[in-house]
Design a protein around this nucleic acid. Structure first.
Lengths: 163, 163
DNA sequence: ATCTATGCAAAGCTTTTGCAATCGT
DNA sequence: ACGATTGCAAAAGCTTTGCATAGAT
């Protein structure tokens, strides 16, 4: 079928990947904007749109991973390998979860309900230590910008306080 | 801790839930806008903001489920029980997956990496029959409005066509 | 030469919010 | 009464797109 475009190597693409690699070393999963801010240090004239485009291209190539599961903003992982993440519902932070494996895996099925299976997206949700430390209750401090999951609980969230 | 507000019963809330129930019977997982359009048939003057607010309230109560995993727009499930979904990366459609269970489950862990675990969000991604039928290649027809997962593959997507 | 990539600005889409009025308990 | 809820309109946030130019192969 469609073989797609022939990707080219550009300074911008290299710079984006390089930033992703640096984040990867710290096991941090940045948002597009965080990547943008960092790339700017090398290429001050790069545009945000270019960062968006390059992150998508790199993800399409399987060189990096787009963590699209949570609510926006999307985050990326420089490590394309199959591993489980956990996301903080308060601040949006994402961490790797070592030693946790989910079954069935994306390879255990090729069709379901008429769907041709591509993969499984799984991540745990919780509250990170940093957020837990800051008054369990109100404040939503250390990263207020990224509202992780609207207001109402996402998915199989809390429940409990029926009334 | 905070016991939260005392929810009240309103015509709008009832109507939203009733629409969700109807979708549930068909095992369809609507977007906020689809709920809005439907509720309008009963309450023509209801506002979109009210629908957003009510869907969140109902999800916070655990009466319905907010499927926040995929990319926007968010979809809802009138069935609050814990079950696995599969989402079409082409059109965004979501279906229930009977008989599939994911382990570990959200109850298998209470802490990870300093996180206090709330739950696990897991869903398969694939291409639905409808989309597969329409030229495997280009068209993105039957529900073009909802761009499911940006352009680049989400998560552990395709891979393969490295170059 | 051809087709991909870039920058910029504008637009798009989903979702949230401020506020005054209204409704539920 | 008290506080939750509603409508409306505006704003916000993230992401995509059109277009002319520059760049890669």
């Amino acid at each position: 079928m469609g073989s797609g475009p022939t990707y080219r190597r550009t300074r911008q693409r290299d710079a984006v990947l390089s930033v992703l690699d640096r984040f990867r070393a710290r096991r941090v999963h940045p948002t597009t904007d965080e990547v943008y801010v960092n790339v700017r240090r090398t290429l001050p004239r790069i545009s945000l749109a270019t960062v968006y485009r390059n992150l998508d291209v790199l993800a399409a190539q399987g060189i990096i991973q787009k963590l699209g599961m949570g609510c926006s903003p999307v985050r990326f992982d420089g490590d394309p390998s199959d591993h489980v993440h956990i996301r903080c519902v308060r601040c949006g932070r994402v961490d790797d979860l070592d030693g946790v494996h989910v079954t069935p895996s994306k390879d255990d099925a090729t069709t379901f309900n008429g769907y041709e299976v591509i993969g499984l997206r799984a991540e745990f949700v919780g509250v990170c230590d940093t957020c837990r430390m800051q008054h369990a209750g109100k404040s939503r401090t250390h990263n207020d910008a990224h509202r992780p999951c609207s207001s109402g609980g996402c998915h199989a969230a809390d429940q409990g306080n029926k009334n």
